[in-house]
Amino acid sequence: MISIFKRSISRSRWIIALVIPALLWSTLAWSAIESREFDDPIHEARYYNLIKKLRCLVCQNQNLADSNADLARDLRNKAYDMINAGRSDAEIADFMVDRYGEFVLYDPPLDFHTLFLWGAPFLFGLIGGLVFFNLVRKRKSDRETVVSQQDLDNARNLLTRDD
């Protein structure tokens, strides 16, 4: 009796262990985007790479590949049509930037007004490095305090004194 009970627990555990990931996976499958047909596998690779690099303007923190928004679907269609029409990745990216601004690119291009954005990590790293270096040097100089000869003699006297 007990052993059957135990077995049913372990079985229900197994079922839970299988069902929960399956449920989670189903939401992933549900949110997947429409399937596309390509004549050329290179076009296909370019398409999926491109829609990962373009931002969905409506949801803002998703790329076109992850978004269910209406506009994202329209822009995916646009990218798909342009790839099949033989346009290059750069042309498609320019097309999007001309209409939606540089914000549509997930990686902002390096130019004058994004200089601080790209430079900031190095700048902060440099500042942190300098602070760290200064702290270390200060600690070291604290440890190397000079002891006067008289203090040394006093200490030696104390240590060698016979009681």
């Binding site: 303007l57 409506v58 209406d70 506009l71 329209d74 822009l75 646009k78 209409r99 939606y100 601004g101």
Partner: peptide, 12 residues
Amino acid sequence: NGDTGIEWGVYG
């Protein structure tokens, strides 16, 4: 179909 919307950069 929203084509002119895309031309004008409409998103919201």
